[in-house]
Simulated scan of single mutants.
Amino acid sequence: MTSRHSQKGFTLIEVMISLALGLIISAAIIQIMVSNSVTERLNRAVASTQESGRYIIARMRDELLQVGLYDRLNPNLSDAVDVVEEESFVRNHPVPIPGDFAARLELGAAQGADGANDILVISLQSDRDCRGYKLGYGADEEFYVVNEYFVSGTSLKCRGFDGRFLRNQKVAVGHNAHSAFTLLDDVLSFQVSYGTTDTTINGTQALPTQYIDASGLEGAYNAGKQVVSIRVAIVVKGEGEIQLDSAAQFKLLGEDVITAPDKGLYKAFETTVTLRNMKNFARGRT
């Protein structure tokens, strides 16, 4: 006896419905994957800007806190020059300006035009410059250090000098070739302003009465004012190919508005550092 088994399959409508559902599910999965990728890139860019900004602000604060430091009674201070006269020079030139140094007349704090990057130069007593170099001094010796911070291309850099070399008191030794070290890449803007005090007004407080840019430092010094605080603002770019809806704009420390060159993720960081050494010196002059 022969038995017949009926065979059944999917109808065309069922196949089309299945394909449509599959396409919808696939599209949703792809969208989720794309969204996750964008989110991951954004998170990486945000994290990199935060890391870069916090690092450079912390470093700048540590170094700026020492501006104007000079202790001629320190046994480690090299006494190859008149330290009393040198102390007076450092105290009265905590932020050097062009013309202060005979060996390098152009060296000094400078204001960038129309929102361009500023140049920061500081004086202090230390055992090494901002690059970590001893500049020919002994392992424990301290000396007059001049550090310069500036932007080249998109990199924030520093270079250090022996202040005694700059003042024509000794020849250059060690790493006085003055090559610059990179502190941070992907920098869009570096701006600096200076809080000055007039001891005849503030008495023993030595608080800043106004903030000026580098172009006003010479006039402030000539008027008997002192720099007692420094504000630093910097804009850094995050890693990755993030594309925002529009290019970011920033207005730092009263400067002209700057616009990012692309639609990447940029973030501004700012800090104000009180120069304790200069505040104490200003109080002593009252």
Rank of each mutant, 00 (worst) to 15 (best):
K263E: 15
N74P: 05
P208Q: 05
E63F: 02
L19P: 01
Y266N: 01
L21P: 06
T204D: 11
F165L: 14
Q50T: 08
E142D: 10
T2H: 12
N280H: 14
Y221I: 13
E14T: 00
Y221M: 08
I25Q: 09
A180E: 04
V83F: 00
T11M: 02
E51D: 12
R44F: 11
E241N: 13
V273Y: 08
T39Q: 12
K263A: 12
Q125T: 12
S123E: 14
L244T: 13
G216S: 13
I119K: 13
T272D: 10
V227T: 04
G138V: 03
G68V: 12
T286R: 05
I234M: 10
S3E: 14
E255M: 03
I242S: 08
V228C: 00
K251N: 14
R164D: 15
I25K: 07
D114F: 15
L135W: 02
Q125L: 03
L184M: 04
V34T: 11
T272V: 08
L124Y: 11
F250V: 01
G136M: 00
N43Q: 07
G240L: 01
N147L: 08
L252T: 07
I119V: 11
Y70S: 05
A116C: 04
D62P: 03
L217H: 05
M278I: 12
D256W: 08
D198H: 03
I122S: 06
Y55S: 08
Q125R: 00
V151Q: 00
E270Q: 07
S123K: 04
N176R: 06
I230L: 01
G240Y: 02
S88A: 12
T272K: 00
M60N: 04
Y149D: 06
G53V: 00
F89N: 06
S126A: 14
A206F: 00
I242L: 00
Q226I: 14
D118G: 08
Y194L: 02
R72G: 07
V232R: 01
H178E: 02
S78C: 02
F89T: 13
K251V: 03
G136T: 05
R59L: 13
D256C: 05
S6T: 13
L124R: 15
A80R: 08
V151E: 08
Q243L: 07
A214D: 12
A247L: 05
R61A: 04
G240V: 00
Y149P: 03
M60K: 02
V83L: 03
E85D: 14
V228G: 02
V171P: 13
N92W: 02
V192L: 04
D256Q: 09
I212K: 01
Q66V: 13
I29F: 12
D71G: 09
